[in-house]
Nucleic acid binder design. Structure first.
Lengths: 348, 348
DNA sequence: CTGAAAGCGCTTACAG
DNA sequence: CTGAAAGCGCTTACAG
């Protein structure tokens, strides 16, 4: 059927071992003349190596499994793109799976990827998953969590510095004159969003630390007034629909805050859509800052101010970790990108 | 190292053939007692079949390759999600690659997927690619193009009925009272966007056919005035940035149209962002309809009116075609979803 | 219903 | 520098 190594060897008048050596540039040297004969034979026959056969024998498939907690969320999607690209740079193929926020689907994908003999596993996880990486460890397959990992997991995690990002968002809104800054979290306090919520609460209820962005250090920090109400915590699902519905509800009940930090771009986009639908002006009536800062956040209406997670660097680091394990900590900074939605009018 | 079929056979006191029969429920029958012993042995040893070995021997990998023309475009991304999900439903794993609008990357991905012995190839293609499916045909691997295929290709194509969609968009804007309806195309006239552009031009320059949506048939069709200017064709790259910049330029030159049909959601999102940045009110000053209708189009500000391509049905059909080839034509309808951006104020 | 054995297409000691 | 051969972990005729 298809042309095999043996066919090439026969045509070149040599052994399969030698053909293998020239196709792989090693591990044994081959005489230049022999090499040329082999290359010529391979070209004439249009030989294409069978990676499956290679994988079985060499015990390495050249494939890495990537499972995304939810592929339609812009944050996970952007992370997924960067990871795939990073893997391609390293010559790896990407086996892709979308867990669609179902822990059992995530588990099942991992099992199937492991059965497919992946060389590594990148798990971009959300709250609520089991420690699927334990299975990878049992199979001696390197794995890495991105964004979140279950509490019990011992697998490395790559995530941005959420607490600092949230503090810079709070500081920034204060500089815009806001004292009452609400927070939109997810349905519960699990995972990174929980961390973000806690950082927000702490920033509002205790003395703020130094501003994280050096560029901002000149700006006066407003003191909170003594009669400040308790911080307003809002919650909704991680979906545009849910966030848009929340705006409607809040408006109907006249409970709209004036400033809002939103845990995710997905929700922020929904907030913007809901605001537009009811004629609520952003940032004039409601100032918002999101905490993902995906590429989509630059092209919303109005453009979303956000703390931008360094997705590319995170992807790079995660893939690195698969191949050169290191204990070195990595907690990259998520800089605040002021755009229109917080009240800034960026030039350009 | 890992537990193999032979280990299970040994423990169950039987042959590898029998173990294989029970693991695969065939193709030969196995006595119930034997079967139970095998299952017990497999469970005790925590046996996991090696899919690579299976693939080599059975000449079927259970993996399908999916290449996306551009993964950050919401249209391709949504299609990709549906295809992956459809494949998962069929028990296939998805090898994923992003061509990032580079024809040579697309070609290379196909080669590598073929080398990985994929059972099929789904190519969500944009203009400008070579006929990569020819290579698949040579390797006897079923392939299908989605959205677009090169002119010379003989591989099946799954795409929506673009011409009808465009006509319904033109009709709809006319019902809103617009006579001068501009069109935003891509940089050139290749591919499906070219078709869309031609359908728009034809709808504007000749007598309109019957309205495609039965629900709309009562609405009066405005006659074009005799002094109507030539249809205005706009072009920009398929990127949000490029579309946003276009709005700025048009406004600066005072050449803004009053009604615009936009070839893609990606560009439409950019138009909305650009409009928001300069305070151009949509739909009051500029009515727009997009021709993709991805899920994101429902959560823009304002919500995008669009002809909605039936992405899920397309994905389903494409994957179907891989496994049960059929000559049956498939040209699904893309219904118009009126939202805010065209001037409609949908209830709910 | 079950077992012994060949073979999928490679890589890799091993011997020369 | 090159070749003969074993073996990766399965599936599948073939024989019994």
């Amino acid at each position: 059927m298809a042309v095999t190594l043996a066919d090439v060897a026969r045509r070149a008048g040599t052994s399969t071992a030698v053909v293998s050596y020239v196709m792989n540039n090693g591990p044994r040297p081959v005489a230049a003349a022999t090499r040329d004969r082999v290359l010529a034979a391979a070209a004439e026959l249009d030989y294409r190596p069978n990676r499956i056969a290679r994988a079985l024998r060499a015990r390495t498939s050249g494939v890495v499994g990537l499972v995304l907690a939810g592929a339609s969320n812009p944050y996970y999607a952007a992370l997924g793109r960067h990871i795939e690209q990073e893997l391609e740079t390293r010559g790896k193929l990407t086996l892709f799976g979308n867990a669609a926020f179902a822990p059992d689907r995530q588990q099942q994908l991992i099992e199937r990827f492991l059965a497919a003999q992946v060389d590594g596993l990148v798990i971009v996880s959300a709250d609520g998953g089991h420690d699927v990486a334990a299975r990878a460890a049992a199979a001696k397959v390197p794995a890495v969590y991105v964004h979140h990992r279950p509490a019990e997991a011992r697998t490395p995690l790559v995530a941005a510095d959420n607490a600092t990002a949230v503090r810079s968002a709070v500081e920034h809104l204060r500089r815009h004159g806001h004292q009452h800054i609400a927070f939109l979290a997810g349905p519960d306090d699990a995972g990174p969003v929980g961390e973000r919520r806690r950082a927000w609460h702490e920033a509002l209820t205790s003395r703020p630390g130094p501003a994280p962005d050096a560029a901002d250090e000149q700006a006066p920090v407003l003191l909170r007034s003594a009669d400040e109400q308790a911080p307003v915590l809002l919650r909704c699902d991680y979906s545009r629909a849910s966030a848009a519905a929340l705006v409607h509800r809040l408006a109907a009940e006249d409970r709209l805050p004036r400033a809002l930090i939103i845990a995710t771009d997905e929700q922020a986009i929904g907030i913007l859509a809901g605001a537009s639908a009811i004629g609520l002006r952003i940032p004039e009536q409601l100032a918002v800052i999101s905490l993902d800062g995906t590429p989509e956040s630059a092209y919303t209406a109005p453009a979303l101010s956000a703390t931008r997670q360094p997705l590319e660097a995170m992807a790079h680091h995660a893939v690195n970790l698969l191949f050169v394990p290191t204990a070195e900590p990595f907690l990259p900074h998520a800089p605040l990108i002021p755009r229109r939605s917080c009240g800034c009018v960026p030039t350009g």
